[in-house]
Computed example of a mutant assay.
Amino acid sequence: MPERKRMGAMGKLSDFGKTNTPGQPTKQAPVQQPLVEQPPVVEEPQPELSPQTIETPAPKPQPEDKLTTVNIKIYRSQHEWLNDTARQVRDNNETPVPAGDRVYPQHLIQTAIEMLRSADVDWTQVKNTEDLKRFLNL
């Protein structure tokens, strides 16, 4: 029985990654120059932005302040309120907002945490949520 080659006349697999040796000429396609000379590209001047039209970027979190996932339980009505409020804030924009600047429920929760941190509450006196609501005048 004649010996049958696995890959036919394709050669060895190890031959595919080899480059040409310096003594072998390489075949290169001739580079064709365009027949029509193209006009130079003229950039339009950028309009100057007044201080009112310049948006200040949101402050970036500190490098050591990385985002983390927290699993919390909230009432369904609170969840719906967060979604509705975030949607209303997004809809308040007349022009499209970049994805990183859009407001979602997590941003409202982050802001609420900042409000709690800055609140004038004596945390040593808080024993339950009722105490916290009383200190916050809710």
Rank of each mutant, 00 (worst) to 15 (best):
D15G: 06
D131W: 11
D131T: 03
S14P: 01
D65I: 04
P63T: 14
R117Q: 03
E64C: 11
A99Q: 11
R102W: 04
D91L: 15
Q32L: 11
V70N: 01
V121S: 00
M7I: 11
Q38Y: 06
I113P: 00
A29N: 14
P59F: 07
G11H: 06
R87P: 00
K66F: 05
G11W: 07
A119Q: 00
E44R: 14
D120F: 04
N92A: 14
V41H: 12
Q88H: 06
T111P: 00
T111V: 02
P30D: 07
D65W: 02
N92T: 12
L116H: 00
P40M: 02
K127Y: 09
L67H: 10
K73H: 10
A86H: 01
P51L: 02
R134F: 13
P22Y: 04
Q88R: 12
E48P: 04
Q38E: 09
E43V: 09
D101C: 13
K133A: 09
L67F: 09
P59S: 05
P98R: 03
F16M: 11
Q78T: 08
P39I: 04
V97P: 01
N71P: 04
Q110A: 02
V42G: 05
R76N: 09
D101M: 11
A112H: 00
G11Y: 03
M1L: 10
N20E: 08
S14A: 14
T19G: 10
P105C: 03
L35N: 11
P39C: 02
R117K: 03
S14D: 05
R117Y: 00
T26F: 14
S77P: 03
G17F: 07
T95M: 03
